[in-house]
């Protein structure tokens, strides 16, 4: 495998990592919002959140990516167009999809905090918001790190699905180079790069878990 091919794979890696980072950054706040709506006692909030989670978890991510990219062009009179910005469409699809999974993880984390913690906050005169951010949230972080780690590592590999709308991320580049050069090497290198990213993320995750080990 020559250097030019390797260089192309690295370019693909940059695109993959950028999608990964953007998805993490935006799906966490969106997921938190959805989980809070989902836990609302008012159906006007929790019903849309339930529906959102059901649809986004109940259909293939690949379909969602294609739908989000192609729908504006294929639906007559749709008031919005991607203007050919495939990356933007791919990012939006990944963010929406991951927010649904994260919402359920956050809900589990928030509900795992005993009611007594909130009651203690209230009796001490803390407001609901103060109790949420000072008492509940820091404990939720500890609870959700392991399941979130799963999703984060899945995401690294799920970014490869955006090749269906023709984005030259790592997997797509490997596929094109493998067939173009009749070589297995691009697949092996791409696999090595995915594995490397996962190893680094796993290390960061277990470091974070250890950092939060100071209390039970």
């Amino acid at each position: 495998m020559n250097l030019a091919v390797f260089k192309l794979l690295l370019d693909g890696t940059v695109i993959t990592l950028r999608m990964f980072a953007l998805t993490i950054i935006f799906s966490i706040p969106l997921g938190l919002l959805v989980s809070v709506l989902r836990m609302s006692r008012l159906w006007i909030f929790n019903l849309p959140a339930r529906l959102y989670i059901l649809v986004l978890r109940g259909t293939p991510l690949m379909l969602q990516i294609m739908f989000i990219f192609y729908a504006p062009g294929l639906i007559q009179g749709f008031p919005f167009s991607w203007q050919g910005d495939r990356m933007m469409a791919a990012n939006v699809a990944l963010i929406l999809n991951y927010a649904a999974y994260l919402a359920e993880i956050f809900r589990g984390g928030i509900q795992a905090i005993p009611q007594g913690q909130r009651e203690a906050g209230k009796v001490l005169g803390l407001s609901g918001t103060e109790t949420f951010f000072i008492v509940v949230m820091p404990q939720v972080v500890k609870h959700v790190i392991p399941p979130m780690g799963n999703e984060i590592i899945n995401l690294v590999k799920d970014t490869s699905l955006v090749q269906v709308i023709g984005i030259a991320e790592l997997m797509n580049t490997a596929k094109v180079q493998a067939s173009g050069n009749v070589s297995i090497m691009p697949y092996l290198v791409a696999g090595g790069i995915y594995l490397g990213i996962t190893v680094i993320l796993s290390a960061v995750l277990s470091f974070t878990e250890k950092k939060l080990d100071y209390y039970r």
Partner: peptide
């Protein structure tokens, strides 16, 4: 009124973090 009444719980409910 909240600040005038203190409550000690059966299960302490200290903040573990």
């Amino acid at each position: 009124i909240t600040l005038k009444i203190g409550l000690v719980f059966q299960n302490f409910n200290l903040f573990p973090h």
